[in-house]
Amino acid sequence: MREQIRAVIAEHARLSTPIDQLGDDGDLFAAGMTSHASVNVMLALEDAFDVEFPEALLRKSTFETVSSIEAALFELTVSV
């Protein structure tokens, strides 16, 4: 799952720091991800994992790091 998340981030987050130089807890917003890019990441993750982020997860902290995205996706895929 983590590698797939990283692939989505690499394609959609438009980071100023390459994703392979960021750890799983590296702040994606601090690395240059804009709010528009974070929406693109969200939509691409929904396509890639066939899920839909509910209202409760639509907040910055969900998309802040690879780890936080993974935790959210885990919650969604387990609960489906």
Binding site: S35, H36, S38, V39, M42, L43, F53, E55, L58, R59, K60, F63
Partner: peptide, 14 residues
């Protein structure tokens, strides 16, 4: 898309 953008931009509550 647009409501997610607003939420992720300002962390507003729905």
């Amino acid at each position: 898309e647009q409501s997610a953008l607003q939420r992720l931009r300002s962390d507003l509550k729905p």
